[in-house]
Design a protein around this nucleic acid. Structure first.
Lengths: 263, 263
DNA sequence: ATTCAAAATTCTGCATCAAGTCTTTTGTAT
DNA sequence: ATACAAAAGACTTGATGCAGAATTTTGAAT
């Protein structure tokens, strides 16, 4: 009987904690750039079989939350991920937290040091350069394929994103501009109809997001990037694969110049 | 018969793991078809115990082991990873097993279904085609970079691997041939001196390993592949980047023909 | 044969226990 | 008195068992 009461109280307490956690997560969701990614990521995982809506697993929520914390700079490179403290802070137990950390380790965002825990991975300038090189090659491929595979509707959609982005650019809304910028690149990759390409591109994009998010480029480089985007769209609409591929390559080649200062 | 020996060796391996403190074990290399290598390495270390004892997490050991089981076909696509049963079979508790599964999920080898467990991911023919397309693009890039960056010593090393592979080919030692084949590709990628490229290439190679390992190509296709490799080496030795890139591309384009039958 | 309910199996999360590592303190020697 | 080394203690990760929740399977009744 005593035991029963104890477990009952425990359950209520647990429920409280979970409610608090969810509220915290929702609150945190408001102010970040994470809304899109979280949703898309969840959908990607959930609608694999187009079945009924499954409740989101705690790992997934945690993985997304931690990833955002790292990208936004709440967890700086080199910081040790303290299981106890971090768990307390997020209102979850250590077990799901550990699983989330392992997941992120496989993604390459954190590094696992045996019997000394996990630290946020620090990217050297060369690492960033290497990633941009690979990303460039992948987007060149995506551009070629997209010109072959894209439907008119998809192209129109990208055009809409582009126009929206230009508006944000003129309004100097840097955050939204940045977000739409990434959306356009992701859309082009998606048009290539290559699942593996989409996966790897998303992964690289995620790893670089932190760098790009932190980096501030000056207005003249910003303008150059916009003009490159303009070229991209026209090339895509003309289904000019060599031109699109070339512009994408140049765009990412220049991206190195834009971020190198902030390293 | 082979399978019997394998399971016997596996049992011994498990017994070893349970007897000795697991932390003392040495993690096997992340790359390669390492089943035999893993065991021999473990025994080597257990007998000699020379050199600094690198502690390794049970997590890593499990990840490597499970990966091998999936690649070799012990766990067929679509089979559910039963935590209790699998844990019992491997002699470990469920917690590290779950962490390993999460890690592999991030790697794309298993799929996580909320509150229904994990299943070995099944790759459709289109998935394989997509992966080969990306891999082709990446190796073309690697070829170009390798011609610029490679030292003479590295080229000589690849030549040695190649000659060894030809020997195995003539001896019809399919397993070793296959292993050396992958080693050569990995070596070329490594020469490109691009860490991100190495990472992603390794990941794709891993995902495709299962397909390629299972697939049996006929002798005439085998000969064609060898001749392509011959071309690769000469192009590399001449530092002819456009030729090497072209051959690598053709090699992987043809790879699709070689594996498509076994899907 | 189909549907609903109950039971069993399996996944998910938490708390506790064990082991290893790092830090601090104390003791000894120069 | 200071410096170095060794031991002890505290802190952190690693691992296991346990309890609750959900899904699937089986059995019975209409």
């Amino acid at each position: 009987m005593q035991h029963f009461l104890l477990t009952l109280v425990q359950s209520i307490f647990m429920f409280e904690m979970r409610e608090k956690t969810i509220q915290k997560l929702i609150a945190a969701e408001r102010n970040g750039l994470k809304h899109m990614d979280e949703i898309s990521s969840l959908q990607r995982r959930a609608d694999g079989s187009a079945g009924p809506i499954r409740r989101t697993a705690l790992h997934d929520t945690l993985v997304n939350h931690l990833r955002d914390m790292i990208i936004e700079g709440d967890l700086e490179p080199g910081t040790r991920l303290h299981e106890g403290q971090l768990g307390e802070q997020l209102g979850v137990s250590r077990t799901p937290l550990r699983e989330a950390i392992k997941y992120l380790a496989s993604e390459g965002l954190v590094e696992l040091v045996p019997s000394r825990g996990a630290v946020v991975k620090r990217f050297s300038p060369k690492d960033v350069h290497d990633m941009l090189t690979v990303l460039r090659t992948l987007e060149e491929l995506a551009g070629r394929l997209a010109c072959e595979m894209a439907t008119d509707a998809e192209v129109a959609e990208v055009r809409a994103l582009h126009d929206e982005m230009i508006d944000r650019y003129k309004a100097a809304d840097r955050l939204q501009y940045y977000k739409l910028n990434q959306d356009i690149h992701t859309a082009i990759v998606r048009m290539a109809q290559n699942s593996s390409l989409v996966d790897i591109h998303a992964m690289l994009q995620t790893r670089l997001k932190r760098i790009r998010f932190i980096g501030h480029e000056g207005p003249e480089k910003w303008a150059a990037a916009v003009s490159e985007h303009e070229e991209m769209i026209t090339a895509l609409e003309a289904r000019d694969k060599v031109r699109l591929s070339e512009v994408l390559g140049r765009h990412l080649f220049n991206a190195w110049d834009r971020v190198r200062a902030s390293l």
